[in-house]
Design a protein around this nucleic acid. Structure first.
Length: 751
DNA sequence: GCAAGGTC
């Protein structure tokens, strides 16, 4: 049997459909779809089975004896063994049983470095059960009959050097990431769910965000002034003009100019011009994500939707770097799909062209085509957001064949008492591609009918106080674009890296804001392990991978060099351990400050009770017992927004896999909670106020005796006692005492 | 419990 292995199930299905003389039979081997067919007849009969993987089906890790963070030093991970373990057992099992019967194996995974590694991973599994089976490799850039037939009639060799290059990346990422993550988490005392992660891609990304925040923090706004006027022509039509000194840095100068202004403006000059916008390039993943982001979809949401549109056959494969349609794609046929249905007027307009010349971007790759619509969907077939994404892909596809859009521009130069004013407008005369792709189009700015020499009435004048603004924070779409420019991450991982930073509570909000913890972690890394905080590490890795792929250097040599570098980093870290612990913990403390205590003026902080629960408590404890409750689970993020009524920072709760919960001011939240509690109580039959201490929950004979010894004999006395003192004397938790007090008089002493 | 990269 001839076994063909592809990177994913859909590729297996489609390749089988192309190569099989008649419909391939779908079979299941240990729960995995396999597509079988036969070529030839009788003695020459050749059976073929095509199976799809699910990307990497094995992964690398350290042996389990390294799993204990407290017992195994981070440094020990540098030279630890690395084992390969299955991540998809079902497929590994299927591959073994198919491999046993294979007389020949063809690796047909994606045509890129990671695809070569994925193919070799599969091959290694097969070789274990069938060491002598001959194998080859086919490379194709599109799954269409011609390309597939050509590729399969010209099989080549597996490129083990290229796979080694991919493998070196895995090892370096694991060793550096795991060792530094463990070191930083231990130094910060953040173990368990709260660990602080470090990585070749995530750390430079976080560094971008932190650096932007630093720029904002040191930014000093400078004041400036603007002079605006509203003008009216003889027909009574109004437009506005601005002083040609757009920003006056000197108030006096601005005032002088402003006071000169009279009632009449003279139109000195009208300058007409043209502007053309070129149509946009085909969608790569990054291009798609930022366009989707611009219409209000987060990167992870956009990718999740694109994934489901892809699996349902509505759009092509959504993970691609390619911005050039391959020659093999029949573009006219793809447009003809839309001759009927909601986009017919657009499709027909394009089909009238004798020649369809698409735009092309700078990046051209071999793995997948740019994202294009694959089949016709109707609005009713899709959910609202799915439709939004689908329509975006369709419209962008059309726009890449359309002509430029043309604007007519007009600039005015005016004079008011010797002061020069300017105004500019633009009118879309030829929509071109913008007709197909109407997203975020600039509006027309039109002027009334005007002639040079016209005299205009100044109906309003204004001098505006303004300030220069700090650089804006990154939005997710913008950040993904910058990551791509810097070579950080891949099309499939960039949005995941950002999600990771959110779920680790390194960042919050949109636009993105870092927490103080991020400042502390980045400061430490920049001082003692700068390599991991810079995009250069990826650049160096890429260079080394190229050298491995070209056979100029062996993988082991690159790994050896990388481990030596990491050892040097650890020498620095060990030398400065005390200082690192101190500065990390100081930074982490910042993220726990909620505000000042309304009772005593000391700091309010997030604290942990002995049992591990969390609450807001006062630093002046035990002299001050102010406290507020916090949710039991989720990462707590203290935002920079403050409550006007209570002066406390707003709080946000992050639970893995859930939408962030904006709890707001903890005091306001508690008051709200109390209100709903009271309402609920009001609905319930009123509980009798306990007459005797023994009526209270959890008070038995022994406790009653202890209370009596402490001088508490009545419910009234218990209600008035100092809960902390009493708790100490009778050796019972403060919480329990407070609970009794609540049932005694319905209020908590000091909250 | 650690990374980043595939895929769903």
């Amino acid at each position: 049997m001839h076994l063909i292995v592809t990177e994913k199930n859909i590729a297996a299905r489609r390749i089988a459909a192309i190569l099989a003389p008649k419909n391939p039979k779908k079979d299941r081997v240990s729960g995995v779809d396999v597509y079988r067919y036969e070529i030839g007849s009788d003695e020459n009969r050749q059976e073929t089975a095509v199976v799809g993987l699910s990307g990497h089906i094995v992964g690398i890790d350290f042996p389990k004896e390294y799993n204990n963070w407290q017992k195994v030093d981070a440094k020990a991970l540098i030279d630890a063994d690395i084992i390969t373990t299955p991540i998809n057992r079902k497929i590994v099992t299927a591959l073994k049983s198919l491999g046993k019967e294979a007389s020949r194996v063809t690796i047909a995974t994606d045509y890129d470095r990671e695809g070569e590694l994925i193919g070799v991973e599969a091959l290694n599994i097969i070789k274990k059960v069938n060491p002598d089976a001959p194998f080859d490799r086919v490379r194709y850039s599109a799954i269409i009959p011609k390309a597939i037939e050509v590729a399969f009639s010209n099989p080549t060799d597996v490129d083990f050097n290229l796979a080694d290059a991919g493998h070196s990346r895995q090892v370096i990422d694991l060793v550096w990431g795991a060792a530094l993550t463990r070191y930083i988490s231990l130094a910060a005392g953040r173990l368990g769910k709260m660990f602080l992660s470090v990585g070749r891609v995530q750390s430079p990304t976080l560094s971008l965000i932190v650096d932007k925040e630093k720029e904002r923090n040191i930014f000093v706004p400078t004041p400036y002034w603007e002079i605006q006027t509203e003008l009216k022509n003889a027909e009574g039509e109004i437009f506005s003009a601005q002083h040609s000194t757009r920003r006056f840095l000197d108030k006096e100068e601005a005032t002088k100019a402003f006071e000169k202004l009279g009632k009449q403006a003279e139109l000195k000059e009208i300058e007409k011009g043209n502007k053309t916008d070129q149509p946009p390039i085909p969608f790569s993943t990054t291009g798609f994500i930022s366009a989707a982001n611009a219409i209000g979809l987060s990167p992870s949401n956009a990718m999740r939707i694109a994934e489901s549109l892809y699996t349902n056959g509505y759009i092509s494969y959504p993970r691609t770097d390619n911005t050039v349609y391959p020659d093999t794609l029949d573009l006219r046929a793809q447009i003809e799909i839309f001759k009927e249905g909601p986009f017919k007027e657009y499709a027909n307009a394009l089909l009238e062209k004798t020649e369809l010349v698409p735009t092309r971007g700078k990046k051209e790759t071999t793995d997948h085509p740019p994202i294009y619509p694959a089949s016709l969907a109707k609005n009713a077939d899709l959910k609202e957001e799915e439709w939004k994404v689908y329509e975006l892909v369709v419209r962008r596809f059309f726009a890449t064949f359309a002509g430029p859009s043309e604007w007519e521009t007009m600039r005015l130069r005016l004079d008011i008492e010797g002061e020069e004013f300017r105004a500019s407008g633009a009118r879309l005369v030829e929509p071109g591609w913008r007709w197909y792709y109407p997203y975020n189009a600039p509006e027309d700015r039109l002027f009334p009918e005007l002639r040079e020499g016209d005299s205009l009435e100044v109906i309003n004048k204004e001098m505006l106080d303004k300030e220069t603004q700090p650089p804006g924070r990154y939005g997710q779409g913008r950040l993904i674009n910058i990551m791509e420019e810097l070579g950080l991450g891949t099309k499939a991982t960039r949005h995941e890296i950002i999600s990771k930073l959110y779920s680790r509570a390194y960042i919050h909000g949109n636009p993105i804001q870092p927490t103080n913890t991020s400042f502390a972690v980045m400061d430490t890394l920049e001082k003692y392990s700068p390599t991991i905080t810079k995009p250069d590490m990826t650049k160096l890795l890429e260079e080394n991978m190229d050298r491995i792929a070209e056979g100029r250097v062996k993988e082991v040599a690159v790994l050896e060099e990388s481990r030596e570098m990491l050892k040097q980093v650890f020498t620095e870290l060990d030398k400065n351990r005390e200082r690192i612990i101190e500065s990390l913990q100081a930074g982490l403390r910042e993220d726990k400050i909620i505000g000042t205590c309304s009772l005593c003026g000391n700091e309010l902080m997030i604290r942990r009770s002995k049992r591990g629960g969390r609450f807001i408590g006062c630093n002046n404890y035990p002299n001050c017992t102010f406290s507020l409750p916090l949710p039991k689970s989720g990462q707590i993020i203290v935002t920079d927004k403050s409550c006007e009524a209570h002066g406390m920072h707003h709080i946000r709760i992050i639970n893995q896999g859930k939408r962030a919960w904006d709890l707001g001011c903890p005091q306001c939240n508690f008051i709200e909670w109390q209100k709903t509690q009271q309402q609920e109580q009001a609905l319930q039959p009123k509980k009798e106020r306990p007459k005797s201490i023994k009526d209270l929950e959890g008070v038995g004979k022994a406790t009653a005796g202890k209370l009596e010894e402490a001088g508490i004999t009545s419910v009234e006395a218990l209600a008035e006692a100092d809960p902390i003192e009493l708790a100490k004397i009778i050796k019972i938790s403060v919480k329990k005492v407070k609970n009794w007090q609540v049932s005694c008089n319905g209020t908590v002493e000091d909250a």
